[in-house]
């Protein structure tokens, strides 16, 4: 078995939240944005991360790249722990891990030309390059991501959303990283542009042997691009497995509910008959439920679920549930009834 590019063990991100108007001496409330995530990523592989809003997807991405302080272990391929590094030690790895952001226009400095934007990581990590060399590389990269190299002196506001995202991708790729973290890279684009950007990512990944962590809430996009998929709920991994396996045979009730809600492009499709509704809202991460975090909304919840935190079980397809398996008709009916009430 090959050594994973990135091996994450029990990664946690906790924010200390001070309540409005609290006295200075009262202890702040901890908010567990990411509560112990385990996964590993092989070179050249794509890991899709899905989950509803506020489940810690973006925080996970920011923790991996060192933008928010985290605890736990994230072992890079050379055996070094990224989480424990000082910013100075981290510098060497920053060119190996790059990020593509959600809002294409907001992630580009409006006062810089495209050439300056794409060159910035290069100037930071390869200070020895001459400016002519930088320019050649920037132009080559622009061509690679499907931009016209002669537009190097234009400003971000002169480009469309899809083009801006290509600029963002070019900026991430210019330092030849091994891993790119894409934080919802297509959710701000319209569907036809989404397809272009995703196909570009897939093509570049094949050409350059990149590993991707692809965060999205659009399950069909994730299914298209990912080798493996990780489902997050309230900062915890619910299920992780190969894309085909997970979409064909979801084991965790939450995954099943999530998959049932994927829109089907068929007007005759019986939505009410296929969606498994989840009652209630996402619990507050400041006060998560005891035991299994999903138990408050799970159609299969039992007394045991409140007591013990389920561990991730299984070999390749792993599930954090005390009672994994497909939902029965009876459970779906019960879920609908609670939702209706």
């Amino acid at each position: 078995m090959t050594k994973p590019l990135l091996d994450v063990r029990d990664l946690r991100v906790t924010f200390q939240i001070r309540r409005e108007g609290a006295m200075p001496w009262t202890a702040p409330t901890p908010l567990h944005a990411v509560g112990g995530v385990d996964f590993s990523l092989n070179p050249g592989e794509t890991l899709g991360v899905v989950g509803e809003s506020g489940c810690g997807k973006s925080t996970l991405a920011r923790a991996l790249i060192g933008l928010v302080p985290a605890t736990g272990r994230a072992e890079w391929i050379d055996g070094k722990d990224l989480v424990a590094m000082t910013p100075r030690q981290m510098m060497r790895y920053r060119s190996d891990i790059q990020m593509v952001f959600q809002d294409p226009l907001a992630s580009l400095n409006p006062r810089m030309t495209v050439g300056q934007i794409i060159a910035e990581p290069l100037k930071t990590h390869r200070p020895g390059l001459s400016s002519a060399e930088v320019k050649t590389r920037v132009k080559a990269m622009m061509e690679k991501v499907g931009l016209l190299p002669n537009q190097i002196n234009r400003y971000p506001h002169e480009f469309s959303g899809g083009q801006c995202q290509r600029i963002g991708i070019a900026r991430a790729l210019i330092v030849e990283p091994k891993l790119i973290i894409c934080d919802e890279p297509v959710s701000a684009l319209d569907v036809s542009i989404q397809a272009q950007v995703i196909n570009l990512l897939i093509r570049l990944q094949k050409e350059l042997g990149l590993a991707l962590v692809f965060i999205a809430h659009d399950l069909s996009v994730v299914k298209h691009i990912s080798d493996r998929v990780m489902v997050l709920y309230l900062g915890k991994v619910m299920e992780i497995g190969s894309s085909d396996d997970l979409f064909a045979d979801p084991q965790h009730p939450y995954t099943q509910a999530l998959l049932s809600a994927v829109p089907v492009p068929d007007p005759d499709h019986d939505v009410a008959g296929s969606v498994v509704p989840l009652s209630g809202d996402l619990p507050s991460p400041m006060n998560p439920p005891s035991g299994c975090v999903f138990r408050t909304r799970c159609p299969r919840a039992q007394a045991a679920c409140a007591e013990q935190v389920p561990a991730l079980m299984g070999q390749d397809h792993r599930t954090a549930c005390h009672f994994p398996g497909p939902l029965t008709e009876e459970e779906i009916a019960r879920a609908r009834k609670t939702e209706a009430a």
Binding site: R62, I65, L67, Q98, F101, L108, N109, E120, P121, H125
Partner: peptide
Amino acid sequence: NREFIEAARATGVPSWKIILRHIVPN
């Protein structure tokens, strides 16, 4: 907290350069 500042930080651009190159011009 705009994303382009975050992008610069993720790349490892030193703080004084972020202030001079990204914040001050804006």
